[in-house]
Write a protein that binds this DNA or RNA. Structure first.
Lengths: 189, 189
DNA sequence: CTTCTAACGCATCGATCGTTGCATCAAGGA
DNA sequence: TCCTTGATGCAACGATCGATGCGTTAGAAG
């Protein structure tokens, strides 16, 4: 539901030290982002929060931007199950509501903002890459099921992810799950 | 067309020293953002680029986040003329194309990303506040002109600004003006 | 059990950041 | 013209950042 991958670091091996360090750093970065101002986030701070030497972070990630892009990529991969209600409309409504719910978490928003600011284009696409894949999976399944007038992924992303993420980033408050469901009729007619 | 307000700093008075410093700092911040990585942007760097002492910037803006929010606010205020084609549909199409054109400028994107990253919610709303006012103006004019089925501002923002800004921030490449025009029928039917 | 390699911790260094107290200067008003 | 006030320049200062060389350790391979 929330996309956290902390307790299942499938990176290399769950028990490895590298994986532990990586998970600790990711967690510390997210906690610091949720707590303080984003422009006060530095690598030594994250390292201290993770109980790791700053040198380790510098060597593994290099810059804060790369680290945040990595955090965003992990945070926004998996965690949201692609629904299967039997109809494309139902799938999209449930999925949009799930995305909206995820976008209500202040920690999620903080990571997104930081990744966008520090990692540029890479940070932005890291936040939505998995969402696009999920969307494509639902549309493809609908096509295979013989549904008619299935939009392509770009149209669907414009109509659903566009308003969702626009409100999350630029709006005062993100949209509600109910409102997100209402976006689907605008796409499917 | 591009929203720059550099040559007309209507802040207090065009000739004042404060206004000159403010304009120089704004210009330096935008130039550095367009040139280098965003996480390397610091107040002393901006001050040096503006030919101003860092102390001045610290005292006037305090943090990098507040400065970037101010830059974004200036950059995205005015500069885009609200069209008056006679019909709401034509107004919205021309306006959306103008927004799309503005969003194709890498400097514009750099400012937006930096403001979002460093200034949080304030930075985000600073980027779109003026767009919402322009939208409201067009919709209100259409209502007064007796047009029927005029959507409210939230619906219009979701359908137009949503996809436009979503592609600009999260997409690999921003949308074209022609594509932006195509968003209007999805709103008006 | 031994060995090997990659990752981590540690100490140190220079550079830069952000702050503060004080002097100076530009603009507007009497 | 002179004066008042707010903004800016200047020069310190401590704190922190980011990089580097080297020793040590964890984990996997044999």
């Amino acid at each position: 539901m929330d996309g956290m991958t902390l307790e299942a670091p499938t990176q290399t091996r769950p028990g490895g030290r590298s994986a532990r360090v990586r998970a600790a750093v990711h967690r510390a970065a997210q906690e610091l982002l949720a707590g303080g101002p984003a422009d006060a986030l530095t690598i030594p701070l994250i390292a201290a929060g993770a109980g790791v030497h700053p040198t380790t972070v510098y060597r593994r990630w290099g810059t804060l931007g790369e680290l945040l892009a990595d955090v965003a990529s992990s945070r926004f991969s998996g965690g949201l199950v692609v629904p299967d209600t039997g109809s494309l409309r139902g799938d999209l409504e449930q999925w949009a509501a799930g995305v909206a719910t995820d976008l209500r978490d202040p920690k999620t928003l903080a990571i997104m903002r930081a990744a966008i600011g520090a990692a540029g284009v890479e940070g932005g696409s890291a936040c939505v890459a998995d969402r696009h894949e999920q969307l494509e999976a639902m549309l493809e399944r609908a096509r295979c099921a013989g549904e008619t007038d299935v939009p392509d992924r770009e149209q669907a992303a414009d109509a659903l992810l566009g308003p969702l993420y626009y409100r999350a980033i630029f709006g005062e408050q993100p949209g509600s799950p109910a409102w997100a469901r209402g976006l689907v009729p605008r796409l499917l007619g």
